[in-house]
Amino acid sequence: MYDGDEKFLRIKAVIERTGCPKASIYRMIKEGSFPKQERIGRRSVGWRASRIARWMEAPTSYQEV
Rank of each mutant, 00 (worst) to 15 (best):
R42C: 03
R17S: 08
W55G: 04
A49Q: 13
A53Y: 10
V45D: 03
S33D: 02
K30Q: 11
A23Q: 09
F34H: 01
I25N: 02
R54P: 01
D3L: 12
P35Q: 05
Y26T: 02
E6C: 10
P21Y: 11
R27G: 01
S61T: 15
K30S: 12
G46T: 09
A13N: 09
D3V: 11
Y26A: 00
S33G: 10
M28R: 15
I25E: 04
M28C: 03
S50M: 10
R39C: 07
W47M: 07
Q37E: 11
G46M: 12
V14F: 00
R10Y: 07
G41R: 07
C20A: 11
P21E: 12
P21K: 14
F34V: 03
E64V: 11
W47T: 01
R51S: 09
R42Q: 11
Q37I: 06
R27Q: 09
E6F: 04
S44W: 03
P59L: 11
S50I: 08
I11V: 13
C20G: 01
M1P: 02
R27D: 04
P35A: 04
A13T: 12
E16F: 07
K36R: 14
R17C: 06
E6Y: 08
R42E: 06
K7D: 06
S50V: 06
V65S: 15
P21C: 13
A49S: 14
R43Q: 13
M28P: 00
S33T: 14
E38P: 00
W55T: 03
P35I: 03
K22W: 03
G41I: 06
R43W: 09
E38I: 02
F34A: 04
R10N: 11
P21L: 11
Q37Y: 09
L9I: 03
E31T: 01
Q37L: 07
S24T: 14
R27W: 05
E16Y: 11
G41H: 07
Q37S: 13
M56K: 14
S33I: 08
C20V: 05
P35V: 02
R54A: 15
R48Y: 08
A23V: 09
R48C: 04
R54C: 12
L9H: 05
K30V: 03
S33W: 05
R54F: 10
F34G: 01
G32H: 06
R27S: 08
D3A: 10
W55I: 02
G46D: 02
S50P: 02
S24Q: 12
A58Q: 14
D5T: 14
A23E: 10
R17M: 11
Y26G: 00
R42I: 03
K12Q: 13
